[in-house]
Design a protein around this nucleic acid. Structure first.
Lengths: 141, 141
DNA sequence: TATTGTTATACTCTATAACTATA
DNA sequence: TATAGTTATAGAGTATAACAATA
């Protein structure tokens, strides 16, 4: 593979292709990309502060506020002051939020599998192994 | 690989990691990301119109103008009206542009190989195969 | 009238700074 | 005084619309 395209160009192009694929799925569930990222982060585990959530998904804390407002209004997350330190907002999914995240993720997984289905089995598993090893730190999208 | 992270998240994170890796290399050569993309596109082959170049790298044509102005001012590209149709600007690299593109690409390749070196040989080649198959159409970055 | 390139404008996304409420 | 969250403001990047030159 001596004469290949730049890695960054290939990866970013693939990323945009996947994001374009996900956009209609998210729209069908009336949720933004950041909204879905937040639901997924909270699905993995609840958070004690909005700043921790922001850091965890690589977003600025000010950027999350409108997202959290919307999710809370739609009763997909709970967001209540910590009785022990009322500056802090405890964040967790509601049952509706948990179900919605699972539904969206299942739809996305279906689309991903369709895309990956164009690859040979061995390339597919190696791609996922390599991505899992390399993606590590960094923002949510 | 049933319980993996979303493919889009992993790919975009990796893409950002690679872009962050490339940024100091581009800065060392005093060239922007879009400038490098244009040099690389023209290195592959000259273009007959700016619109064709823009479409080829997935950029808006208006976005390229400042980039082309800069590259032309630094005599890295030639940009002359087509005698046969003077609305059109013929675009090609100068010798200096060709050399600079090669130097930057070599630096980037070195950094990429370092990153890929953390992978097993079989995963690495499969990753490149999969990326080459999947990235296909789409913007330059 | 249609097309290439250019300029001017508006819009979106994001980060920075200033504010409030708690501690 | 320091910190969590919020609001207001400014900046970068991008796309849209209007324009000039040429066909």
């Amino acid at each position: 593979m001596e004469n290949r395209a730049d890695l960054g160009a290939m990866v970013m192009r693939l990323g945009r292709r996947i994001l374009a694929m996900e956009r209609p799925i998210l729209a069908a569930h009336a949720i933004s990309m950041w909204g879905y990222i937040v639901l997924t982060a909270l699905h993995d585990r609840p958070m004690r502060t909005q700043a921790a959530l922001a850091a965890g998904i690589g977003a600025d804390k000010t950027r999350l506020i409108a997202v959290l407002d919307d999710l809370q209004r739609r009763e997909l997350i709970e967001r209540e002051p910590d009785p022990a330190d009322r500056r802090v907002r405890l964040l967790r999914l509601t049952e509706a939020g948990r179900l919605l995240q699972q539904r969206i993720q299942a739809d996305i997984r279906t689309a991903e599998d369709q895309l990956l289905g164009t690859l040979q089995e061995s390339d597919r598993t190696a791609l996922l192994t390599a991505l899992a090893a390399l993606h590590t730190e960094g923002p949510g999208i």
